[in-house]
């Protein structure tokens, strides 16, 4: 131990008042050391503070890690923005909110998934014609139950085809590549089998007669075989009960699946 250190120890331990110039100098150093000792106690208190801060920071990490706050805000904002943008893009897809195919699995539509009757199985065109022709033209008719039974009504058969939302769903999701168009205009005319297809409205089966042999059935056969053009959504108003009590059900279908009348 150096001599000065010994003197300092003696001064601190004995509290001697310096008399000599050297002791006065040492006393001055002592006083300085006392103040320094006060300062030395600060790190301890600082440690205590830090310990308390560290303890509290477990519960309040943001408060304890103020230095990292800004980057975290940026990161959080970016994450939220990316999520919201992705969600908005997802929700902005066509017909996402009220997709017609979402009604497919409804129990009320289950019977519609049954295989369609072959066109030959519904040749009663006359009844179909009378179904629409006999609709009360003069207003005032109130018998709403006069429509023929669905099983005997080719119009209803078409309707059943149209109202098959499961088919629409499949069509919507199929690949873009499509087969080549059927050679409608190159097909031979007067094709008896085609004429006898029994499609609704066939002039022959409806008793209307007329020329153009083969054209109707062939063209409609092409309608089933040729690729479909882009279809637009059509709101099909059904007589079934809708989700709102007392209102009919509405389904969105594709216009390719719809037979219009008028």
């Amino acid at each position: 131990m150096a001599r000065g250190d010994e003197q300092l120890n003696r001064i601190f331990e004995q509290g001697l008042a310096g008399s000599s110039a050297e002791e006065r100098q040492l006393m001055a150093i002592r006083e300085g050391l006392k103040s320094l000792k006060t300062d030395v106690s600060c790190p301890v208190e600082f440690d205590d503070v830090m310990r308390r801060v560290r303890t509290e920071s477990v519960a309040l990490p943001a408060a304890a890690k103020g230095g990292l706050r800004l980057p975290w805000m940026w990161g959080g904002t970016m994450a939220v923005a990316a999520t919201v943008v992705a969600f908005a893009v997802f929700m902005s897809r066509p017909q996402t909110a009220v997709s017609p195919t979402l009604a497919v699995d409804s129990p009320t539509t289950a019977p519609l998934t049954a295989p369609l009757a072959a066109p030959d199985a519904a040749p009663e065109t006359d009844s179909a014609a009378s179904a629409l022709a006999d609709q009360p033209v003069a207003l005032g008719a109130t018998d709403l139950d006069s429509a023929p039974a669905t099983a005997d009504n080719p119009v209803a058969a078409l309707k059943r085809e149209v109202a098959n939302p499961r088919r629409s769903s499949a069509r919507r999701s199929r690949p873009v590549s499509r087969p080549a168009p059927a050679p409608v205009t190159l097909a031979p005319a007067n094709m008896p089998m085609a004429r006898a297809s029994g499609l609704p409205g066939n002039a022959e089966s409806s008793g209307l007669g007329g020329s153009g042999g083969g054209a109707p059935a062939m063209a409609m056969a092409a309608a089933d075989q040729a690729p479909k053009e882009e279809s637009v959504p059509v709101v099909l108003i059904s007589e079934r009960s809708g989700p709102v009590t007392g209102q009919n059900a509405a389904f969105e279908v594709e216009s390719d699946d719809v037979v219009f009348g008028g």
Binding site: T125, D126, A128, A129, L132, A133, P154, V155, L158, P181, A182, V184, L199, P200, G201, N202, A203, S206, G207, L208, P216, A219, M220, A222, A223, A226, P227, K228, E229, S231, S255, D256, V258, V259, F260, G261
Partner: peptide
């Protein structure tokens, strides 16, 4: 209904 092979509307039924 839609005429699938091109533009136009394909007549499927005509009422007497």
């Amino acid at each position: 209904r839609n005429y699938p092979a091109g533009e136009g509307a394909l007549v499927t039924q005509v009422l007497p």
